[in-house]
Design a binder for these strands. Structure first.
Lengths: 138, 138
DNA sequence: CGCGTTTTCTTGACCGATTCAAGAAAACCG
DNA sequence: CGGTTTTCTTGAATCGGTCAAGAAAACGCG
């Protein structure tokens, strides 16, 4: 994958790529921890640089819902979206409701040349929704 | 407006509300500057608290595209979306392409109870797109 | 395979938006 | 006009992320 993107193959990059694939919507801190299980010596900066390089070349995708730190996922190139729990912050993938390139056409594009539509659904995850109900019926 | 939301009416809150209405997608720093034109003494904390209170009560809306600081707008309750320029970061409003509650229905909601769909279109604003073309045809 | 160039990693300082905490001031309710 | 509660001031702290300089590792080529 790295060679395909004309990126040098280094241990930190391999480990970061592995970590992003192994974890689900992981933040940088979790990725650093995972990478250090293999390479205890890596600096946080190497991880930041790797994530930046991988993101810029489309090998991983970066998402950052409001109020959250940056998170990374390995599912790329299929324009799927995310649903975020307002209470616990957990993220799940959702496929687009509309079509292949979903809401990619704005009603009026204001003269912008749009290349991506990012959709975030906000709500309550099943667990938090259940806890919510219990609170109101004690 | 403040009374309608059961919020105490204070000078800082009035000034913040005015600033958000006067500016377009302003960040906190701009809002602080605008507020201080009327009330030179206000602390940044008062502005942060006011924005938080206004946002929590739906009087202003907070948006935060990846890589940007928090921004606030006065257009609320009409589920419109935003288009962000990848180069200069400028933000414009766009109405939803689909319907009243646009992409509010995910293909598979994963058991979440969704209450909002937030859409951000990424692309190039007219100015940056033009500059881009000039770069490639010097 | 070894060398030189270029990119990447290590180390450690730094930054800036936002939050926390404690006390003073101001709104609201009779 | 008090008393209570919320909000504001002041000032410090937090924390994700970035910057900078030199050391180390990849890669390309002979």
């Amino acid at each position: 994958m790295l060679r395909g993107a004309a990126l040098r193959v280094t241990r930190p990059r391999l480990a970061v790529l592995g970590a992003v694939h192994a974890l689900s919507h992981a933040d940088t801190e979790s990725i650093i921890a995972a990478v250090r299980r293999d390479l205890p010596q890596v600096s946080h900066q190497a991880v930041y640089d790797s994530l930046q390089a991988l993101t810029a070349n489309g090998l991983v995708r970066r998402i950052q819902p409001s109020g959250s730190v940056a998170r990374y996922e390995s599912r790329v190139g299929d324009n799927h979206h995310h649903v975020v729990c307002r209470l616990c912050g957990v993220i799940a993938d959702v496929d687009c409701a509309v079509a292949e390139t979903p809401c990619l056409t704005a009603a009026d594009d204001r003269g912008y040349s749009i290349d991506e539509a990012e959709v975030i659904y906000w709500g309550l995850c099943p667990d938090c929704a259940a806890a919510q109900v219990l609170d109101h019926q004690p």
